[in-house]
Simulated scan of single mutants.
Amino acid sequence: MITSAQLKASVLNVNTQNFDDLALSIFRFQAQNNVTYAKYLKYLQVDVSKVQSIKDIPFLPIEFFKTQTILSGEVQPKIIFESSGTTGQNTSRHLVADPDFYLQIAEQIFEKFYGTLAEFQILALLPSYLERNNSSLVYMVEHFIKQSKSPDSGFYLNNYHELATTLKRITSEDSSKKILLIGVTFGLLDFAEAGLDLSFLQAFQHLTVMETGGMKGRRKELLREEVHEILTNAFYVDKIHSEYGMTELLSQGYSFGEGIFDLPASMKILLRDVNDPFNVEHQTRGGINVIDLANVDSCSFIETKDLGSFIPDTGQFRVLGRFDNSDIRGCNLMIL
């Protein structure tokens, strides 16, 4: 019988040619070893042996992460990631049995898109996430900061003056350094509008500004285009990068601008009919179903509450918004 460790080793080496076969192997593993997912499949009267295509795989509604234990096998969680939420909301909990694998896959994905972390100075502006101790985003960025091995890398809560001073010093010392300014959207907007002189950034060519989504009720909701216009003007960059990730996923997608996301080898998006959650045939717009092969120890097949569309002939996608009456989530608060 195939093991979790064997599947994870395969995930680290997956490619477009073997993605579907590996996804089906993980589906069968989780159908047998994930009690909650197995019950869901039984409720749907799914014959696991007859599932021969990823389009036939039932996706677990993301709400199950709020009420059920989502674990595959006899593993025990070493860390529990919890989603942000307003007071009284029932938040999602991702039980992670192998946090080292999460960091390994997250690092591999980032470096595939952006290059080695050791080349970056990472300045993180994640105030709301730092206020709690169970954020998957903070856990990932903290690892990135360590891997950068730079004394200038670090977290900044609301100390915008110190952040601006650090940016100015780094850019003046070495114009070839690569800087990643990564932040929750309202934090980046607050920094941009803090009245600080950031004009020194005009002469710097290696700044990447990446927003992770999230207004958290701190600011008026804005269109993505409005947010990106404010940030590009404030930081003197051509594009604002974005991350597509959530508590329930161990893999991340990245956008190099305009809200168009690329996916790593370990992820695939299927779009479902908004009126028929089991129809993923030939949809170009609809609800986002995520296959995250890195979720070996939880569930790799998740029906999210995000709405999306495919970019024709590219394999890329946009996040358009959220289903009506769904909870506001930290990773996708912007109205698009």
Rank of each mutant, 00 (worst) to 15 (best):
I260M: 08
S255N: 07
F256D: 09
S255H: 02
F278A: 13
N279G: 08
M267N: 05
I240S: 00
D276P: 00
F256T: 09
M267G: 00
E258Q: 13
D262R: 13
S251I: 03
I240T: 04
H228A: 09
R272V: 11
N233I: 06
M267S: 09
G286M: 07
D273M: 07
G257S: 11
N233K: 15
E225A: 14
Q283E: 12
F278E: 14
S266A: 15
M267Q: 12
D238V: 08
V237K: 01
T284W: 08
E243F: 00
E225Q: 12
Y236K: 11
Q252W: 05
D238I: 03
F235K: 00
E226V: 07
E258K: 13
H282W: 05
L263V: 11
A265T: 13
V237L: 02
K268A: 09
S255P: 04
A265L: 13
Y236I: 05
A234L: 04
I260D: 04
E281Y: 15
R285Y: 10
E281C: 09
Q252N: 12
R272Y: 14
N275V: 08
L249R: 02
Y244C: 03
M267W: 02
L231Y: 01
M246P: 02
I269K: 01
P264D: 03
Q252R: 15
T284A: 09
H241Q: 10
Y236E: 08
Q252I: 02
I240P: 00
E226C: 06
Y236P: 01
L250H: 07
G245P: 03
L263K: 04
E225K: 11
G259S: 09
G259P: 07
F235Y: 11
E258D: 15
G245R: 01
P277Q: 11
P264Y: 07
I269S: 05
H241C: 11
Y244I: 03
I240W: 03
M267H: 06
G253D: 05
R285A: 07
F256H: 13
L250T: 01
Q283K: 13
H282S: 14
S242L: 10
E226S: 12
V237G: 01
K268V: 07
I269P: 01
A265Q: 15
H228Q: 13
S242A: 15
I230C: 03
N275E: 15
G257C: 11
F261Y: 15
V280H: 03
S251R: 07
E281P: 00
T232R: 09
N279C: 09
N275K: 13
L250E: 07
V227A: 06
N275C: 08
E248P: 04
R272K: 14
F235P: 00
S255K: 04
N275P: 05
Y244M: 04
L263M: 13
M267Y: 06
E243H: 04
D238C: 05
I230V: 15
M267A: 10
N233D: 12
Y254R: 07
E281T: 14
V280G: 07
Y254V: 04
Y244K: 03
E281R: 12
E226Q: 13
S251W: 06
P277K: 11
F235R: 01
Y254D: 04
